[in-house]
Structure formats: structure tokens, C-alpha cells
Design a binder for these strands. Sequence first.
DNA 1: CGGAGTGATATCTCTAAGCGTATGGAGCGT
DNA 2: ACGCTCCATACGCTTAGAGATATCACTCCG
Lengths: 302, 302
Amino acid sequence: MERPELPLQQLHAFVVLAEELHFGRAAARLGIAQPPLSQQIRRLEGKVGYALFSREPGRIGLTAAGRELLPAARHALTHLAQGLTAAREVGSGRAGHLRIGFAASLALTVLPSLLRTFRERFPAVDLDIQEMTTTPQLAALRERTIDIGLLREPPARDAELGFETVLTEPFVAVLPASHPLAAQRAVQVEQLADCPFVLLPRAVGPPLYDQIAGLCIAAGFTPQVAQHAVEWQTVCALVGTGLGVSLAPESIRRIRLEGVAFRRIEPDTVRTRVAVAWRKNDPNPLVPGILAALNQDPPGTP
Amino acid sequence: MERPELPLQQLHAFVVLAEELHFGRAAARLGIAQPPLSQQIRRLEGKVGYALFSREPGRIGLTAAGRELLPAARHALTHLAQGLTAAREVGSGRAGHLRIGFAASLALTVLPSLLRTFRERFPAVDLDIQEMTTTPQLAALRERTIDIGLLREPPARDAELGFETVLTEPFVAVLPASHPLAAQRAVQVEQLADCPFVLLPRAVGPPLYDQIAGLCIAAGFTPQVAQHAVEWQTVCALVGTGLGVSLAPESIRRIRLEGVAFRRIEPDTVRTRVAVAWRKNDPNPLVPGILAALNQDPPGTP
DNA sequence: CGGAGTGATATCTCTAAGCGTATGGAGCGT
DNA sequence: ACGCTCCATACGCTTAGAGATATCACTCCG
């Protein structure tokens, strides 16, 4: 790309004059006097190297070179004007797009209401949402692959990322419907001591895993993991087949599956935190926007 | 179309910086020092109203607004560069297009060689050729519908149009092959006195018509027009059916038709002039080009 | 022949902006 | 702690060019 040689202002004058074919009117449309317009055109012609208009007394017209330059000038001007307003829309936060990573377990609780209220306030914004577990979300935020994360059990503090708790929820026991404990309204955690467990791998969200394990340990046993699954959806399905039991955040109750029962646990002192995460230095004006949307719309009331 | 607000130079700097993502290298590519580049970007951001780059130490990147503006800036710059070179090509006469009107009778003589030599010298030029008789050509030239005319018997002089004779040619008699006179090598014009004539209407080219009529009158008779036809092609076809005879410029010999004979006439003192016509004030640099091509390539040697 | 309309020229002013050099200051590596 | 890289800032110089006003030149027309 070489250095631009034609000042935009002169091109604007050129386009207007090409439309009016009359120096006086064109100058009026441009809001300037006639002599400056003559100068502009003259300068532009000087830079192009050839006449752009044929001036015969009484009628002026485009030359062949002028006809060639006109569409390019028009394109450039309109493109730039559009690009500029688009950039301003985006800059002001009225438009743009936002890439959101979210934990699958929130697809049925936090996410729907968030999307709804955000779309109301920023109708021109495209939201790209993708399911990711906690650890990949943190990495994606740092790599700028996503702009917003919705995750569980965020780190306490981070130099680069900001976090804000969206909601806290207790854990529930996930049981096969046929399981004897499913007959109770609530389950003592220690009653699960001898059951095989279905859990998410620790790697996808160590803090959450540790919380669950911690619940068991507090109840006096170490959970025997019979099977790992990467999504809560799958965990529930496996529990439904009788493969084992699980402990999960309450919001997965929304996953309604044949043959799976959810029961309160006792004690339910431990709660899992769901937080929104963002880059502290993100210049995208939509980031404050979505944080505001989250605060305005108290989640948990989907 | 509103007033352009973004100087092209700054947009250029913006695009280069967006590619390099490094002030030092971008400045080097632009051939300037680094501080001026910082200024350019700063000014541009000032005009847009929002930051275009996120500057964190060690890594700079486009903001959302910058990503929005970038393609527009690129488009504008490349479009303008292309338009500028195209305009210069056209201005210098290396490219462009030329609308040529020509008399049908020249389709087989002057035109082919002219097109060939012109295409050699100006390969990037598009030629739009259209068949027109003399009078419409003059009108089309004045209305700027065509740029070049190839016509017969031009007016002697004209305030607006220039003419230059391309070739002169004698008239020949056009006879049915079965006609008694077709047995002779040459025909005396007065021998046609009693034959019905097939001629072009006077309106499509009064001077040519008057020349033909003049030939007859000089031979002592007034031609009896049995039939008018608008093209020489048709005239010959009608002659071939035995409808009459005609007098025509020699170049229509090229129209080879079953049952039509062409014969020299005596006296052959009168010649018809074929001329090229153009607007004297036409700024199109191709006009001199085509005149030069006509002179370089002596017509009549197709 | 004179006036209207139209565009070119001449002259002046003023501002924006482009560039350079010098310098400051924040990270980052050794 | 030191130096290095990289970007921002400050300051000064210089110029292109955008604008205005006044005037001239040409054409057309009544």
C-alpha cells in the first residue's frame, strides 16, 4: 500500500462538483465560496496529473480521466463514512460483538436471563456464546479468545482478570431414581460414602472439584470416582443409568432426565460461587455494559 | 455525502500500524520517526472519538472500534490508489474507451485496418463501434454520444467539429449480373439514363446523394429512383433481384453478392471523400491517438 | 453595447498538521 | 540494579492548504 496522495477533502469537492457540474452550486453545497472550490479542483488535478473536468464556457463536464476517478472517490468516501460511524457505534458500545464463554451448567439459569436483558439494552450487539469449562475460560480470556467468562469458583484475585460473583448456590445429591436414598427428602452426605461417584475431571475446574471432594472429606470419607464425564449433562445421564451418584450445584436440577433424582444434602454449608470474569484492561465498552446488565437483573430468577 | 473528517494520511498510518502492531516498525515502513506516528494515531483517535489501539506495555492490539474501522480504511486506500492509477492511465491515453460511429459502407475497408493498428498501439483501450450514417454521426458527435465519426462527404468546416479526409474513392456502377451493360468492362453513365435506380434516401447523407445525382445530371438525365434502401448491403441485394441499378462508392465492391456486378464508370471524375470527424475541444487523449493511427496506416490497403 | 452569469486569478490570513530532536517513564531481561 | 526496548510527551520548525475578498475574462443575451 503506497502513500496516499489525494486529500480526502479535495476528493469530496470533486465528487460534489461532478454531481452538480456547476462551480457555484457545488461551492454552495460544500458551504464555501466559489474561488476556493476552483483551487481545490485545480490542486487535485495537479496531483492526478490530468484534467478531471472539461471547462467550456457554459458547460462543464467530466473528462475521461475524471469519469475513471469518480467511482473510486465515491467508494472511498462512502466506505470511510460508514466505517467511521460503525467504529463510533462500536466505540460507544451501541454496537459490536462480544464473545462469551460459559459453563454448561449455567445454560439453564444465569445465561438465558442475562442474554435477554442484554439484548434489550444493546439490540445491535452480536453475542457469540460458547460453552467452556472454567480453566479453558481463564485461558481464553487471557488469550483474548473470549471477552466475558461465566464460570464457577473463580480464583480469589488475578492481576489481569476481574471477577464478580453472580450467584451462590448449594450442592445437591444426584441419585438414580431407584436408589434407596432417593426416597428421602434430604440426604446426609455421609450416606454416600459407599456409593461410586460420577464426577467431572478435576482439570476442568479444580476449585469446584475440590469443593465437592471437600464435602465428602468433611463427612468422613473420600469419594470413589467410578466414572468421569466432561459435562454435567453427561454426569446426570450416567447417574440415570445407575452407574453411581454425584454431588452437583443446584442449578443442574434444571436438567430433567428420566430416572434421575435430585435431593437436598445435609449439611449444605458449602456453596459454589458462579462469577463473571473479564479482562480488567479490556477497552471494549460493552464489557461494563454486560456487567451492568448482570447487576440490574438479579440472576436466579430466570 | 458528508464532509470527510479523517485525513487519508492518518488512515494510512492506522492501517500500517494495524498490520505491524508495533510503533517502531510501522514508523520505519512509513519512512518517518516514531514520535510522529504516535501523534498521527493519537490525532486519528481524537477524531474518531475512541481508542483504536489498546496499548499495554509489550503488546499493542486493535480495539473493537479499530477492528471496525480497519477494513473501511483499507478499502478506501486501495480503491483510491486503483482509481488514481486508472485515471492516470486514461489521462495519458494508455487506457480508456472510445465510442466510434462509422458508415456501414466502411465496415469492409477503412474500419478493419484502423481497428487493427489502433489495438496494437493502445491495447488497453476499449472501442465501442456502432454503425451510423453521416447525419446522425454529426449529431451524435455534438451530443457527445460518440467520440469519433467515420463518415462520407463531411461539411467543409464546422465551428465545433474537426474533419480530416481519410481516403477518396471513385463511384462504380452496380448492375444485375444479367444486365446487358454488365458485359462491358466500363459503363458510360449516360447508358444508365433509362434504368430505374436503387439509392439511399437523401436524408441519411445529403452530400453523397447529391454527388450521385450530380453524376447523372452531368450525363444528361435525372435518375429515376425505383426504390430506397437504408444500407448499401440492401441496395446491392435489391439490384441483384433485378429491381434496378445503382451508383455507389467503390468500396462496396467488397460486398460480394450472387448476381451483382460492379463496373467502372466513365467519366469517373467525381470522387467521394471519406473523413474522420471529432470534437475539436475533446480533452480525451485518445482522439489524437486515433488520428495518428489513421495517418500512420494509409487506408485503402486493408 | 451593456449587464448577468460563470469561472479563473491574485493576494492575504490563519490554522492544522507533519516532522524532527530530545526526553521521560514503564516493563522486562540479565 | 542496570540497561534495553518501546511508547508517550514536549517543544519548535515549517509548510501545505483551506478559506475569504476583490478583480478579471469570457460568453451569452436582450
